[in-house]
Computed example of a mutant assay.
Amino acid sequence: MPEVMFAGPDGRLEGRYHHAKQAHAPVALILHPHPLHGGTMNNRIVHALYQRFQAMGFSTLRFNFRGVGRSQGRYDGGIGEISDAAAALDFLQAVNPNASSLWVAGYSFGSYVGMQLLMRRPEMGGFVSVSAPASHYDFGFLAPCPCNGLMLHGADDELVPETSVRKLVDKLNTQKGIRIDYRVMPGAGHIFTPPQAEQVADAAEDHVMGVLNRGRMALAAD
């Protein structure tokens, strides 16, 4: 789990990067919750997803947004953080120029940033969105949503009502060619317990491996 520092738009950004052994491995970028509410790349969900993508054979990066940990700069209301995520993706793609696919996963605020990143990088192959803050931010920019993905939410989320996320998912699923895999975790709030964090990682693995396996089968059939 080597430490990395890479150039961001407002100074250097601190991350942890795992490089997959196999050639042309897929890559994943993991984004943490809100910087002003204690969010860091060491968050329980971020770490669980980082480890799980690594176990699935991905080259994987998690990093601190500007002003968090050893990352330079200061919080920028989401705008600068989207630029930070784009810089992290640039780093990932520079190190993995022949990656077979590209994924982004985010938790809470990181989910919002990840979805914004989807709209800027059409090469994205899929996404994992955990506890998307659909009642706090306008997700209307997903018009159209550029790719399919997994959205997961706690049934008892006290900060973001599950109904607000379900409404967003229903809207996305009306778009042509888009299928959002929506999963609601019973008994889970916005902050997940350690066992629930593993359940989140299990759901991500189930979704991602299903997509990758269908892709391999389609290639084999050609």
Rank of each mutant, 00 (worst) to 15 (best):
R70D: 09
L102A: 12
R120Q: 13
N42Y: 12
K171A: 14
L142Y: 03
D222A: 14
L29E: 00
Y17I: 11
R52T: 01
I45H: 04
A218Y: 12
P33V: 04
P133C: 02
V211D: 12
V208H: 05
M115G: 01
R70T: 03
A132G: 09
S101V: 08
G154N: 02
E123H: 08
D181Y: 11
L31T: 07
T193W: 09
I191A: 07
S129H: 04
D206L: 14
M115H: 10
Q22N: 12
R216W: 14
P97N: 04
R16W: 14
V128P: 10
A28S: 08
G177S: 05
R16Q: 15
I191D: 11
P195H: 02
D206C: 13
R179S: 15
G149D: 06
G149M: 05
M115S: 11
P97K: 07
Q72A: 15
P144W: 00
N42W: 11
Y112T: 07
N98F: 13
I30E: 01
G187Y: 02
A218W: 07
G73H: 01
H34R: 08
P161W: 12
V130M: 07
H19I: 11
P97L: 08
R179A: 15
H136C: 11
T163F: 14
D90A: 05
V68G: 06
S111E: 03
N43D: 10
A25M: 03
I191P: 08
Q22L: 10
A88P: 07
A55C: 06
I30A: 11
L212F: 13
V4Q: 08
L117I: 00
P146H: 09
D156K: 14
H47Q: 14
V169H: 03
F139L: 07
F53G: 04
R183Q: 14
A28F: 06
A188D: 00
S164A: 15
A188Y: 02
N96G: 01
M41D: 03
A197K: 10
S131Q: 11
G140K: 12
D138F: 06
G11W: 03
V4Y: 00
D157A: 03
P97D: 07
P144V: 03
V68Y: 07
D181W: 11
E3P: 13
D156F: 07
Q51V: 03
A20P: 06
G106Q: 03
L13V: 13
F63C: 01
A201V: 00
G114Y: 01
W103Q: 06
V113D: 00
G39H: 05
S135K: 02
G39N: 01
E3D: 15
P2I: 13
L118Y: 07
R179K: 15
A7N: 14
N64R: 00
R62A: 02
H47F: 13
Y75N: 14
V104Y: 06
G8P: 00
H34Y: 06
V208F: 04
D90S: 05
